[in-house]
């Protein structure tokens, strides 16, 4: 009996591949939202596996805030080439100009909110009816409530009170014109599951996930990379530290952690030992209110 048993990572992989294939089969114009972070890199790996020996049957879409880590962008271009996928990049910068949006101000002026405009424009431009994203339910309370197939109205909004029942492994992707579906194939994975899978499958990551030296400032206990995107005040002291990133978002809203872990085994050991959650340690945009994520999602965020 025991030989017919999947390890938990294989079981998670099987579920995610099944979801990817449902997307490819049920929608006319799906896309994979690619951020350059480890979760979306894992998605690309799963998509590659799901459709091999064929190509990934949908484009990778990157909403570039202009505040990305250069290492992540370089990695993005290389990965798209490697898997022979179409890469579509749309810039928040352009949206700000064309739509005359107001840039947020302040020390860590983040374009996180503005991304949603570019995303919705891009969905319209290409008539995408499904967007695959790398959100996980363990990340955050509002995400814990979201379905794997999450229907968004024509404004991209999530209505948490009107979610479709999602039964067994049956995914209902039927939508009206103008609506779209956000699909989250790794909903049931945790941060550690993703890391263990990356190790198991030997998936490459951008170098900033591993220990390196960097110029930073320390702000309210968090380490923010010194870059032209943040405002340096006279009282800020730029320090040079050995750090790695636990998540990769914008340089303005992602904090680094002090670390000497320069290989995946050490990174996994550090994550196992940490007493702080992924978003809590690395995202400065979640701290505004308890419902920050719920509000962003209702407005069309991932």
């Amino acid at each position: 009996m025991s030989e017919y048993k999947l390890d938990y990572l294989q079981e998670l992989e099987a579920e995610s591949i099944y979801i990817m294939r449902e997307v490819a089969a049920q929608f006319e114009k799906p896309a994979l939202l690619f951020s350059g972070g480890k979760d979306s890199i894992t998605l690309v790996h799963l998509a590659k596996k799901a459709f091999a020996p064929g190509r990934i049957p949908f484009p990778l879409v990157h909403i570039d805030t202009g505040h990305n880590f250069p290492e992540a962008l370089e990695f993005r271009d290389q990965l798209a080439k490697e898997v022979a996928a179409t890469l579509i990049v749309r810039n928040v910068e352009d949206t700000i100009r064309e739509r005359k949006l107001t840039e947020p101000k302040g020390k860590f002026a983040s374009r996180n909110w503005l991304q949603t405009y570019t995303l919705l424009d891009t969905i319209e431009e290409f008539s995408f009816d499904a967007c695959i994203g790398g959100a996980r339910r363990d990340e955050e309370k509002a995400r814990a409530k979201e379905r794997i197939f999450s229907v968004r109205d024509e404004f991209g909004q999530w209505n948490p009170k009107l979610q479709r029942p999602e039964l067994w492994n049956i995914f209902n992707g039927r939508i009206h014109k103008g609506e779209n579906v956000r699909v989250f194939p790794i909903s049931n994975w945790t941060e550690l599951d993703v890391w263990n899978y990356i190790r198991e499958e030997q998936i490459d990551l951008p170098s900033i996930y591993f220990s390196h030296e960097r110029d930073l400032i320390e702000h309210e206990g968090q380490l923010i990379a010194s870059s032209s995107f943040i405002r340096l005040d006279p009282e800020d002291v730029v320090i040079r530290e050995k750090v790695r990133y636990r998540t990769v978002g914008d340089m303005t809203c992602t904090a680094a952690v002090r670390s000497t872990a320069d290989n995946i085994n050490d990174v996994i050991n550090e994550i196992k030992a940490t007493r702080i959650s992924e978003r809590g340690e690395t995202r400065i945009d979640d701290k505004v209110t308890e419902a920050a994520m719920e509000d962003r999602k209702k407005n069309g965020y991932f």
Partner: peptide, 25 residues
């Protein structure tokens, strides 16, 4: 997880939670 749930002190929708012990996820 939802604001309405916290306000009313009830659970409206299914929330998924994860934990792992050395034996199982």
């Amino acid at each position: 997880g939802l604001r309405a749930e916290r306000e009313q002190g009830i659970t409206i929708d299914v929330a998924y939670r994860y934990f792992t012990t050395p034996v199982r996820k």
